[in-house]
Amino acid sequence: MEKLKALILCAIVAIVLTFSGCVSQSQNSPTSELEHKKVIKIVMIPDEDPTKMLEDMKPLIKKLEEKTGYKYEVHLVSDYSAAVEALLNKKADIGYLGPLTYVLAHAKDPNIVPFVKEVSAKTGKATYRSIIVVNKETYDKGVKDLKSLKEHAHEIVFAFVDPDSTSGYLIPYSALLKAGINPEKDFKKIVFAGGHDAVELAVKEGRVNAGADNDRTYPAMVSKGLISTDTNIIIWKSDPIPGYPWVYRVDTLPKDLREKIKQVFLNMSKEEALKISGGKVIGYVEATPDDYKIIEESARALGKL
Rank of each mutant, 00 (worst) to 15 (best):
162 D>H: 11
68 T>F: 12
91 K>R: 15
179 A>N: 04
293 K>E: 10
23 V>S: 13
245 P>D: 05
299 A>Q: 05
28 N>F: 06
286 E>K: 08
144 K>Q: 13
294 I>D: 15
57 M>E: 08
52 K>T: 10
281 V>E: 11
236 W>M: 02
165 S>V: 00
119 V>F: 03
219 P>I: 00
145 D>F: 08
279 G>P: 11
32 S>Q: 14
253 L>W: 04
201 L>P: 01
272 E>M: 12
239 D>G: 07
56 D>R: 09
284 Y>H: 13
261 I>R: 12
289 P>H: 11
273 A>I: 00
132 I>E: 01
35 E>Y: 09
38 K>T: 05
162 D>G: 09
214 N>V: 01
303 G>P: 05
155 E>G: 02
115 F>C: 00
269 S>A: 07
9 L>C: 09
95 G>W: 01
105 A>G: 06
282 I>N: 11
17 L>M: 13
261 I>A: 13
151 E>C: 02
126 A>P: 15
119 V>K: 07
78 S>E: 13
302 L>P: 14
227 I>A: 10
2 E>C: 09
263 Q>N: 13
263 Q>E: 05
53 M>Y: 12
100 L>P: 12
221 M>E: 15
152 H>S: 10
210 A>L: 02
280 K>A: 10
282 I>G: 00
72 Y>K: 01
177 L>R: 12
121 A>M: 08
14 A>R: 04
256 D>V: 01
189 K>A: 10
22 C>D: 12
3 K>V: 01
214 N>T: 00
82 A>P: 03
